[in-house]
Design a binder for these strands. Structure first.
Lengths: 129, 129
DNA sequence: CTTGACCTTCCAGTTTAGTGGAAGGTCAAG
DNA sequence: CTTGACCTTCCACTAAACTGGAAGGTCAAG
């Protein structure tokens, strides 16, 4: 697959793929005789993984850490495990924060949706903060 | 409360509070006769709300939208409700992404934690991607 | 009455994650 | 044999969210 096709399949631009290659999140692709990058189909799912991580608010560095498990191989397993355990703890904390936030926003929303005229009062809404 | 005390209570720096004021996330504080900002105690919880949102991966603009409910008051309730409904949809999408990501990372981790020596093989781990 | 820890404004620099555009090569189709 | 849609590199620019530092004011304590 060429870069544009791969990028489109993953919902990104070709520019972004080159940028990810530069940052080491994407291994340097094979080149066709004309110099064009030639990606295997699996690259799409790797990119989707990166995109999910980004949407979830992870930095490229964090995503790179997770992906680098692939390249660590030589290192003792304990390093891999520790890295992943830390990522899990971070993700759990982040999910907890988001869930708490969602609950707060839902409270605002329900008050507004109840049609309760008082819910339009900025002071009352503010008290939820 | 002065700016440094308020910032410390919320786990931030005074610089960040001035920055938030500049961005409209924090209303301009009252000033003491000497020109120092004087914050009410509630500012700490407002800042904690902002910090939770940031930790959860929201942008300051999104957090500002949520907080601006406070200032909308005059506007018809439907605007408030739509804004909050959109925030809820965004939060749900983000929580779903994070949860999916967590599941993937947990798979890696369990494979590594099983003590399965094969889990050290980069090719095998890679297959999860 | 000076020292130190605060505070003020303003302006510039940093990091992250891209995006835009120039200058040019490739290639199938008309 | 020339468009047009791709691709290449390289360099500069953007936006978001701070962060640092200069230059100076305030004030309680020694």
């Amino acid at each position: 697959m060429r870069i544009g096709e791969t990028a489109t399949a993953a919902g990104m631009t070709a520019k972004t793929l080159r940028f990810y290659e530069d940052r080491g999140l994407l291994p340097a692709a094979d080149r066709a005789p004309n110099g064009y990058r030639d990606y295997p189909h699996e690259t799409v799912s790797r990119l989707e993984f990166i995109r999910r991580g980004r949407t979830a608010g992870l930095t490229l560095a964090q995503i790179g850490d997770i992906l680098s498990v692939r390249d660590i191989g030589q290192a003792p397993c304990v390093h891999v495990r520790d890295l992943l355990a830390k990522q899990l703890r971070d993700l759990d904390a982040q999910i907890a924060e988001l869930t708490a936030l969602r609950a707060t926003v839902a409270e605002f929303h329900d008050a507004a949706a109840a049609g309760d005229p008082a819910s339009c009062d900025p002071e009352r809404i503010c008290s939820y903060l």
